[in-house]
Simulated assay, not measured.
Amino acid sequence: MELPTQADIAKIAKVHRTTVSLALKDDPRIPEKTRRRIHKIAEKLGYKPDPMLSALIARRVHRQERPFQGTLAWLVNNEGAWDWRPIFHEYHEGAVNRAKRYGYNIEIFDLANPPGMTLARMGAILAARNIRGILVTPQPRTDVDLTAFPWEKFSAVAFGYSLKKPQLHTVGSAQFRGLKLTMRSLLGMGYKRIGFVFTLHHNEVVDHNYLGAYLAEEYLRTGGSPLIPPLIATDDFKSWYELHRPEVVIASSGGRFIQRIRDAGLKIPEDVGVVCPFFPSRHDPWSGVYENSVHIGEVAVDTVVSMIHRGERGVPETLQRIMIDGVWVNGKTLLPPNPRP
């Protein structure tokens, strides 16, 4: 007995096979009533997608650029002095290049501009443009609530942990593993007195991953408390440095901390090394872990396009978090390696 096909469903439903294909993906371009009717026919016939055919189609799509499919929204929230571009421009670079492969372009939409823009209005604009996929950039604060946005109309992926509500599928850097790699790289170079400096705000933005990894690695190394207690960046760095004399400092938000070290009369890296557990641009001079930002943007597009194809929209019941490993870079803020004997 031959298995039912989409052509069989189309014949019974009296629609084109393309309509059946879109309806089975719950594509919003097909009226909901039609989608429900086609799903019922498919269920009655016992239709199941051919996994081998789906894999072949996916392979063909991956190997060649597709004709224009539409636009994905790059949703930013540039409220106040916040600007996503200096830190996250490589996310955008990777996303744009990967989107072209699928036949999409990416357009920037700002929740904070023009002034007075509402979440409902932004949703209506995107729906009117027939935009079905959204990439939500990191937020300016950790208490941002975008629940009132009409997520049920869109497939959406967020970058990182900074969006408080709703909880969307997430693509980001593997921050815990990044600091673990940082610690083990430093120990392998012969460093023993390793300090850690963080801000409370940044600690929350990264879901406590850096602090958690540092404390875990220090516990494994010492069997107890860290050799040097972590420093909250708002405290007196000079007093902390003179008391504990770290050979190298891991700064969770390194760029903002450099001036504090120089104000203490210290030279980098001659007096003290500085390492960033994740820096966002491959062009940065940092020693530490490059978070592979371009690839994070690529994976975010892979994820949202797959969601569009599956007809997966709205706030998910079960979250998926895709974390991308970074790469250790010796950089210019650390003295050359001095391996332990």
Rank of each mutant, 00 (worst) to 15 (best):
H295W: 12
L243A: 13
H89I: 09
L75T: 04
E217T: 03
N105Q: 04
E43K: 09
D83K: 14
N203L: 06
V76Q: 06
R310K: 13
W84V: 14
Q139N: 13
E298L: 07
Y210Q: 03
T142F: 02
R17S: 07
T199D: 11
V205F: 07
V289D: 00
A174P: 08
R193F: 13
A300T: 15
G190C: 05
V289R: 01
A156T: 08
A13T: 15
G160Y: 02
I261S: 01
P4Q: 13
M307W: 04
I250S: 02
M52L: 12
A58W: 00
L319K: 11
Y47H: 02
L215W: 01
L319G: 11
F196E: 00
F237K: 02
Q259K: 12
P49W: 03
G326D: 01
L75E: 04
L220N: 13
Y219T: 10
K153N: 13
G224F: 08
L179K: 00
D302I: 11
W240V: 13
V275W: 00
G178Q: 04
G326W: 00
N330C: 06
G178L: 03
R98N: 09
N105M: 05
N203I: 00
S162G: 12
Y219P: 01
P86C: 12
V144Y: 06
R260D: 02
H309E: 15
I250T: 07
W82G: 06
R121Q: 12
N113K: 11
L56A: 12
I30A: 08
V275H: 01
N77P: 06
D325L: 11
N130S: 15
G80I: 00
P115H: 08
L163F: 10
A174E: 04
R17W: 03
P336Q: 03
R98M: 13
L111V: 06
P337T: 01
D26A: 13
S253L: 13
L215D: 00
E79L: 03
P277W: 00
L111M: 14
K165N: 12
V144I: 14
I324A: 06
D207C: 10
A81E: 03
K332M: 01
V144Q: 07
L319Y: 07
H295I: 15
P150D: 10
T5K: 06
D143H: 10
I41H: 05
F278E: 07
R36G: 05
L126I: 15
P337L: 05
K44L: 04
E204T: 12
A158E: 04
V275N: 01
H62D: 14
T118R: 05
P31M: 10
P67C: 08
E93D: 14
S225I: 15
T34P: 03
M323Q: 09
T303I: 09
N209C: 09
H202K: 01
T19P: 02
E43R: 08
S306N: 09
S252E: 10
L243G: 07
F149W: 12
N78Y: 14
I232H: 10
Y219N: 07
L22H: 05
I30K: 09
H89W: 15
M52S: 11
M323Y: 08
S306W: 03
P230R: 02
S239Q: 13
N338P: 04
K238G: 04
L146M: 06
F196Y: 03
P277K: 01
G254E: 05
M323F: 04
